[in-house]
Design a protein around this nucleic acid. Structure first.
Lengths: 346, 346
DNA sequence: CGTGATGTCGCACAGCCGTGCAATTATTCG
DNA sequence: CGAATAATTGCACGGCTGTGCGACATCACG
C-alpha cells in the first residue's frame, strides 16, 4: 500500500478562473491599489487624472469591485433571502417577483430559496442564509420553529414574515378576517342562505383564518354553512372541495374560496360537472385577485391583495429593522378590497 | 468584559449588528481560531475532544461559517444568477422555480434578478452579478448585447441561455421548429385548411421561431395561413390575436398559439365573443403545457416542455462549464411532446 | 521666496476565512 | 523507560477589499 508515484500531484489544484482584481487594475494603470479602491468609493479623495487612468484600466480589463470582499470588510453582504415553497404558483409568484424587484431597486441581492415546508428544510435554508451572511430573510410560507427565530435573533438577522401573524417577527399580512367577514355579509345580504367555504387541509395560516372567519360570521348571521377542503390550496383542491360541497342533494348557493386557485377549480367543477350556472345558481367569491381572476372564463369576484403593496411594505419593514434593530416588533396590515366581477354581484 | 473609559465617543460608527465569528467561538471554546476552522473543514485534523468543545461552543453561540469570507479565499462564491423578466408568469415561473431548486440541491445559491428587457437593465444586472462574483449566470429572457458575452467571458463567468439559440453561449432550448412543423402537419392532416398562428410582437426569439416554422410549413402544405399578434405574448395578447384573426368573414378553423398564455386568451375570446365551439369550429394547439392547460375550462392540447428537464439540463451545462471552462460551446435541445386534450384531437 | 493649507498617494492594517509549516503534545513499540 | 512515530495545535500568511495616517506634491498668498 506504500507505493505509487512520489512525484507531486499538484495539477488538480482546481485553479478557478479568477475575476479581475483591483491589484491588476492598479498595475495596468500604474497606480497603487488604494487609488483603485478610492476611485470606486464615493466621496474618497482621488485626483481627476488618476481617477481617469484607473477608470480606463478598469474598463479595459472589465473590472468590477468585489462586493463579497467589500461585504466581508463592511460586514454587510447586501444579500436578502426570499424563502418560499412553490414560488411559481399563484399569489406567491407575484409576491416573490415583486420582492425581487424592490430589493434590486434598493441595491440588495435577492436570493430565492425554493424550499419545502418541513422544519428541516427551513432550517437548512436558514443555515445557508446565515452562512452567506444575508442581511435579512423574508419568509413567504412555511411555519418556522422557535429555534428559527432565536437563531436569526442571535445573528442579528432581521426576519420579515409575509401572510401570517407571527409574534416573534415583523410581519405584513392581509386583513383576512375582515375580508372573510365581509364575504359572508355581502353574500348573506344578497339573499343567499346556503353558504359554503372552500379551503384546504394544508395548514396555511392565512387559509385557516379565512375559513374560520367566514364560518363564524356566516353562522352568526344565521346562514347554513358547509365546508369543503382539498389537500393543497391549489386548483385540484378546488375541484376536490367542489366534489365535497356539491355531492349532497341540497347545493350551496354561494361559495367563498380561500384563494383564487381554489376558486378556479371549484368554478370549473361546478360548471362542467354539476352543470350549474355562475352566478345564477351559485355565487363565487375568491381571494387574492390574481390576474387569472379577470380572465373571461372566470370573471371572478375576489378580494384584491396587491402584491406590489405587500412587497413594498415588507421591504420597508426590513429597512426599518436594519436601520434600528432594537425597535419593537412591527407589523403592517393591508386591507383587501373586494373587486366585483361576474361571479358575484352584491 | 471590563471597559474602563466610559467617555467613548464611538457611537456614530454605525456599528452593524455582527454575525458570530470563528474568533468568538474559539474564545468560548478555549482553543485557537484554527481549531474552529478545522472543525468545520471536512478532512482536517482535529482531536475529537477539541472538535466536541468547538461544536458545543458553536451551538451555544449559533455560529455558522462565513461563506462569504470562505468564498473570497477560495475564489468561489457559490452564487448563481437567474436573470428573467416577469419571472412570475407562465412557463418562466416554473423554469425559475425549478432552477432555484436544483441550484440549491447542488449547494449553489440562486439569485433571482427580476429585470426589464432593455440592454441597460441587463447590463446593470450583469454588473451586480460580477460584483458579487456569481459563479455563473443563467438567462431566461432578454437579448443581451455582444458586450454582455464579452464581459462574462473576460471574468470567466459561464453564461447559460435558456430558450434561445445563442452562438456565444451554452444554451438549452426546445425544438420549436420541429414542434411547430408538427402542429401544422397534424392540423392539416385532420382536414383543417384555414390555419392561423397567434403570436406576438414582443420579439421573443422562441415565439418568433414558432410563428415562422408554423407559417412556412402550413404554406408548404398548401393551407391558407393567417397570423394574429398581440403585444406581449400573454393572455391579453391572445385576446388581441383573436380579435385580429376572427374579424373577417371567413374564420380560421385551427389556430396554433405560440404559447399557452396566448392560447387561453384566444380560447376565451373565441368562445365568449365569437361564440364558436372548440374544437368543433376551431381547433387550438398551444405551447408549453403549463398546468393551466389541463384545467377543465381549457383542456388545451399543447406541446409539453418540462421545466424540470430544461432546468436540469441548464444546470448540467453550467456544471460542465465550471468543470472545464475551455470546452467548446454546447447546447441541449429538448424536443417537446404533443399532449392531446380536448381542444384538438388528431 | 517662505509658509501654511490643501489635496493625493501609498503604506499598513483590519476584517473574515483556509491551510502549510513547525512546534508541541500524545501514542506506540521495542 | 526512551525513542520513534503520529496526531494535534498555533502561528503566520494569503486572498480581497476599505480606510486612517503620515509623507509628499501642489498651490495660493503674503
Amino acid at each position: 500500500m506504500s507505493d505509487g508515484p512520489v512525484s507531486d500531484d499538484k495539477p488538480p489544484k482546481k485553479e478557478r478562473m479568477r475575476f479581475v482584481s483591483a491589484e491588476q487594475v492598479a498595475q495596468l494603470a500604474g497606480v497603487s491599489r488604494s487609488a483603485v479602491s478610492r476611485t470606486f468609493t464615493p466621496g474618497a479623495s482621488v485626483a481627476p487624472a488618476t481617477r481617469e487612468k484607473v477608470l480606463r484600466a478598469a474598463q479595459e480589463l472589465g473590472y468590477q469591485v468585489n462586493d463579497l470582499a467589500r461585504g466581508v470588510l463592511a460586514n454587510q453582504s447586501r444579500l436578502v433571502g426570499i424563502v418560499a415553497t412553490k414560488p411559481e404558483v399563484g399569489f406567491r409568484a407575484h409576491l416573490a417577483s415583486a420582492l425581487a424587484k424592490f430589493l434590486i431597486q434598493r441595491g440588495s441581492i435577492p436570493i430565492l430559496i425554493n424550499t419545502g415546508q418541513t422544519e428541516e428544510e427551513l432550517l437548512a435554508a436558514q443555515k445557508m442564509l446565515i452562512g452567506h451572511r444575508a442581511e435579512a430573510i423574508i419568509i413567504l410560507s412555511g411555519s418556522p420553529p422557535a429555534s428559527f427565530f432565536e437563531l436569526a435573533q442571535r445573528n442579528g438577522q432581521p426576519l420579515i414574515v409575509i401572510g401570517r401573524s407571527e409574534p416573534d417577527a415583523d410581519h405584513v399580512r392581509a386583513g383576512n378576517s375582515e375580508a372573510s367577514r365581509k364575504a359572508a355579509t355581502v353574500l348573506f345580504e344578497s339573499g343567499r342562505r346556503r353558504l359554503a367555504v372552500a379551503g384546504s387541509n394544508s395548514g396555511t395560516p392565512s387559509i385557516i383564518e379565512r375559513e374560520s372567519a367566514f364560518l363564524t360570521t356566516a353562522e352568526a348571521l344565521g346562514a347554513e354553512v358547509s365546508i369543503g377542503r382539498g389537500a393543497d390550496s391549489d386548483y385540484e383542491s378546488g375541484i376536490t372541495a367542489g366534489r365535497v360541497l356539491f355531492s349532497k342533494q341540497v347545493h350551496p348557493d354561494a361559495v367563498f374560496c380561500a384563494n383564487d386557485q381554489i376558486a378556479f377549480g371549484l368554478m370549473d367543477y361546478v360548471r362542467q360537472e354539476v352543470k350549474l350556472r355562475i352566478p345564477q345558481d351559485v355565487a363565487i367569491i375568491g381571494f387574492d385577485d390574481v390576474p387569472e381572476a379577470s380572465w373571461l372564463s372566470y370573471q371572478l369576484t375576489s378580494f384584491r391583495q396587491d402584491p406590489l403593496v405587500m412587497a413594498m411594505r415588507a421591504v420597508e419593514l426590513m429597512e426599518r429593522r436594519l436601520e434600528n434593530p432594537d425597535l419593537p416588533r412591527a407589523y403592517e396590515r393591508v386591507i383587501p378590497e373586494l373587486v366585483i366581477r361576474q361571479s358575484f354581484r352584491p
